[in-house]
């Protein structure tokens, strides 16, 4: 399964890199290139999500599940890959919902931000995958300089978990309440 996983991860990595570029062109560019980028983004994102899910499923099968849980690097790889999937799934849903309007007003800045966040997360995911495959890169040194040694598990203390939940809940409530007002 290792070889298949290594092959499949190139789909989300390549597609998400391209998707980030399309978001930038679609949100910040003008004219025909921007229109093409906007039109191509959603199909690309759908394909990337399918590829990512296949890559994640095969990734889970590379080692026994207990080995995945016991390895700090594997834990980090799983967390970052699922967070990457979450961010890009959000981008896909928002683009699907808003269509061309997703690239207008304040929405385009939201897309740009989410694309950059998704780009950082999948870069980290790929870096961790490189470590697991025995091919570490210098990118992990940058992460270390920024305060995270990738050989230690990425987890947050209990009070931060609560803050994350509250912020997530607050965002949802904010959206729902203003949505009702608009209706």
């Amino acid at each position: 399964m290792t070889g298949i996983h290594h092959m499949l991860v190139h789909i989300p990595v390549g597609f998400w890199a391209l998707a980030a570029l399309l978001v930038l062109v679609g949100a910040l560019g003008r004219g025909r290139p921007a229109e093409i980028a906007q039109a191509a983004l959603l199909p690309l994102l759908i394909l990337s999500l399918l590829g990512a899910m296949a890559a994640i499923v095969t990734g889970f099968l590379v080692w026994p599940w207990q080995a995945n849980l016991y390895s700090p690097l594997a834990r980090n790889h799983i967390l970052m890959s699922l967070w990457s999937l979450g961010v890009w799934a959000m981008v896909a849903v928002l683009v699907w919902r808003a269509g061309a309007a997703a690239f207008t007003g304040a929405r385009r800045w939201a897309l740009v931000f989410l694309a950059l966040l998704g780009g950082v997360l999948f870069a980290i995911t790929g870096t961790l995958g490189g470590h697991l495959a025995g091919a570490p890169t210098a990118f992990s040194k940058i992460l270390g300089a920024l305060g995270w040694n990738v050989y230690t598990t990425f987890y947050v203390p209990g009070w931060v978990l609560l803050v994350l939940l509250l912020i997530g809940l607050g965002c949802a409530v904010l959206g729902v309440r203003s949505g009702r007002k608009a209706a």
């Binding site: 979450g86 987890y155 994350l164 608009a182």
Partner: peptide, 25 residues
Amino acid sequence: QWWLTLAAGLFLLAGVLVGLWFSFS
């Protein structure tokens, strides 16, 4: 703690999605 962090992050992203949902009408 890692499981909880993973889940909390996904919950956060879900909350953000719901929050942005009506702005992306």
